[in-house]
């Protein structure tokens, strides 16, 4: 049987490669965006700390910027000092 393809539609899926399913801060799935964004993906990316815990960048930034004391700039998950990886 010969098949002639007249038309095709490409479909792609994407997923963040993270150890976890959802952001521990906003509790939304990583594949969704933080509650302040509307479009997931590059506009609302994940960041990892050196401790390897990922968060939506907007969520972790909001938390860190609310902590004036450097000593309080901890990873919310493991409470180690937060440093971007």
């Amino acid at each position: 049987m010969k098949v002639k393809i007249k038309k095709w539609t490409g479909v792609a899926v994407w997923k963040w490669t993270a150890n976890d399913d959802s952001c521990g801060i906003c509790r939304m799935p990583f594949e969704a965006c933080c509650p302040d964004c509307r479009i997931p993906g590059d506009d609302c990316p994940l960041v990892w700390g050196q401790c390897s815990h990922p968060f939506h960048i907007h969520c972790i930034m909001k938390w860190l910027s609310s902590q004036q004391m450097a000593a309080a700039q901890l990873c919310p998950m493991c409470r180690q000092g937060w440093r971007f990886r």
């Binding site: 521990g24 509790r27 938390w63 004036q68 004391m69 309080a72 901890l74 998950m77 409470r79």
Partner: peptide
């Protein structure tokens, strides 16, 4: 919250953070 009342003797790591629920 981690910020307030530094004299309380509570360490930042024992305080609130947004992954608590």
């Amino acid at each position: 919250p981690p910020g307030d009342d530094p004299q309380s003797g509570e360490l930042p790591c024992e305080r609130w953070n947004p992954t608590q629920n």
